[in-house]
Design a protein around this nucleic acid. Structure first.
Lengths: 150, 150
DNA sequence: GCATAATACTTGAGTAGTCAAGCTTTGCGC
DNA sequence: GCGCAAAGCTTGACTACTCAAGTATTATGC
């Protein structure tokens, strides 16, 4: 009925799915006073050595622009989840560090969001989850590949 | 390394993939002066009988709010892709119709975006595309299901 | 048949980003 | 070691929405 090519149908499904899936996760996180993007920031930081990372690395790690990071980190710094750290070697960069309070907030929020994620995948078994992840990863790689050609 | 549950890893992959995939499609559409959301609107309309649909149906069809639809349709009406149609039975609803000019623009844009979609899935074969679509659909259904429980 | 609720839509205010331009600091060619 | 390009970050202006409140119309209970 759709009269679209299969790749295009896949993208439509992808967009619609993400829209539906993200809503419950965001409302779960909002209980902790955290947005999904902020959770992504804290997740990245929690995985970095010394919980510290360059702002630009953070930007393309979570898929926003440098100015997006600036605006995103401002309120997070105010509430004390992150802090700025100067770089001795290069005065241009200002590093971001997850504070102990930020780590604590991240860990609490992660419990909630993981539980929500489990509810959202309730009709899939683990094998399907992993298979889906694998296919999405190759789509991801294809997209990067396609972008480089143009 | 990630130390997240599999469902949560799936969602991270989903979000990252959509981010990467949508960029080339949007830049392709921008050549036609159309945003991705506008394309979604025209796609919905092109599939409706008489190319006409209620604004609220359009809203949840493409996953935005009613006010989002109002703001989205304004410029589209100005350039003549869509037009307002009154409903005789119910004066509350104002229907939206895709004009012939809109249909023409949609068809041109669709050729481009489908081509872009094919490039973006270049590393997947058709079977993988269909399998991925199937898995995403069941994720989609799970999410709707989970949302209704809360 | 009349009050009350529900539906469809619009509008004002706010949010979460983008992009382009600017500033500061570093790296590079020669 | 000097000039110019590039990198890292911030800021002003804009876009694409959302949410809450408001208006108009239709449906419902009794």
């Amino acid at each position: 009925m759709s009269s679209l090519t299969h790749p295009m149908q896949l993208i439509l499904t992808l967009v619609k799915t993400q829209g539906q899936v993200l809503k419950p996760l965001e409302s779960t996180l909002s209980i902790h006073g955290i947005s999904f993007t902020e959770w992504l920031v804290m997740h990245r930081l929690s995985q970095s050595s010394d919980h510290t990372i360059k702002r630009v690395s953070l930007a393309d790690g979570i898929g926003v622009t440098a100015s997006g990071v600036t605006r995103l980190l401002l309120p997070m710094e105010k509430v004390g989840w992150i802090e700025r750290v100067a770089n001795a070697r290069d005065a241009r960069v200002s590093l971001v560090r997850l504070t102990p309070a930020g780590l604590e907030a991240y860990q609490q929020a992660t419990k909630s969001i993981e539980y929500a994620a489990e509810r959202v995948t309730n009709m899939m078994n683990q094998q399907q989850v992993e298979q889906c992840m694998g296919l999405l990863s190759s789509l991801h790689l294809s997209a990067i590949d396609a972008a480089q050609l143009s």
